[in-house]
């Protein structure tokens, strides 16, 4: 029997990478969105605008509930529902290589968001979904056999984590551990992967560009 994930097409590898990215982005926007929701209530009415400005998005809202509703359903290509939908699309295409329960967790989060009242979504409901996402990560990373499938998802997750940290916090120091992790996974997937280094002196935008380009050393899109 062929080992699952031993022969990965470009499309499959790309899909796994993007599952990692979309889910990581979902998690960060969900967690930061909940924190920001709390600020919007009575600390800083504009906290939501500042948060999405960092991600290059504009948002208008009249109160914390509307801010949160837009975070979950309406902010262009960064809302949680869009992100989980994209992750699920990739996961659906990769059901042959993805762990069944891992697919199930993504599907359950998607279905839960699809069925909720879009105007009155509560942070509590999203916290519940973050716990489901924890179960997904657990399912992926706690497998005894850590193969290509897991590594590509983790690679995407790590790239997205770095990207989001840089956009939201703009602090190079905070990503050093993640860079190490990225290099380790990159080399495990492809021994010719050139480690990311010498970031000192680069602008945040240049670092983001560099990190996002790493995938081209892992997946040979041109072949």
């Amino acid at each position: 029997m062929q080992t699952q994930g031993k022969y990965l097409s470009i499309r499959s590898a790309d899909g796994l990478y993007w599952i990692g990215r979309y889910l990581q982005r979902f998690e960060i926007i969900a967690k930061e969105g909940i924190k920001t929701f709390d600020l919007v209530i009575d600390v800083d009415k504009d906290a939501g605008k500042k948060f999405f400005n960092k991600l290059g998005r504009e948002i208008e809202y009249k109160d914390s509930i509307e801010f949160f509703s837009k975070t979950v359903y309406f902010i262009e290509t960064s809302n949680l529902f869009y992100l989980i939908d994209q992750a699920r699309e990739n996961a659906t295409m990769l059901r042959d290589i993805l762990d069944e329960d891992a697919f199930m967790f993504i599907n359950v989060i998607y279905t839960a968001l699809k069925e909720k009242d879009k105007k009155n979504i509560s942070p509590k409901a999203i916290e519940e979904l973050i716990r489901k996402l924890d179960s997904f990560w657990g399912r992926i990373f706690l497998k005894t056999q850590h193969g290509l499938v897991q590594m590509l998802i983790e690679f995407g997750q790590t790239v997205e984590g770095i990207d989001m940290k840089l956009r939201l916090f703009g602090d190079l120091e905070s990503i050093m551990y993640d860079i190490q992790k990225l290099n380790t996974i990159g080399q495990a997937i492809n021994s010719t992967f050139s480690p990311v280094k010498n970031l000192e002196g680069l602008t945040i935008d240049s670092v983001i560009y560099k990190i996002n380009s790493c995938v081209n050393e892992i997946i040979r899109y041109e072949s």
């Binding site: 029997m1 062929q2 699952q4 022969y7 097409s9 059901r95 290589i97």
Partner: peptide, 13 residues
């Protein structure tokens, strides 16, 4: 298609 690929160890393409 995905299910049978998974169960038979074939690559889904």
């Amino acid at each position: 298609h995905a299910y049978l690929a998974k169960q038979t160890g074939a690559v889904l393409a």
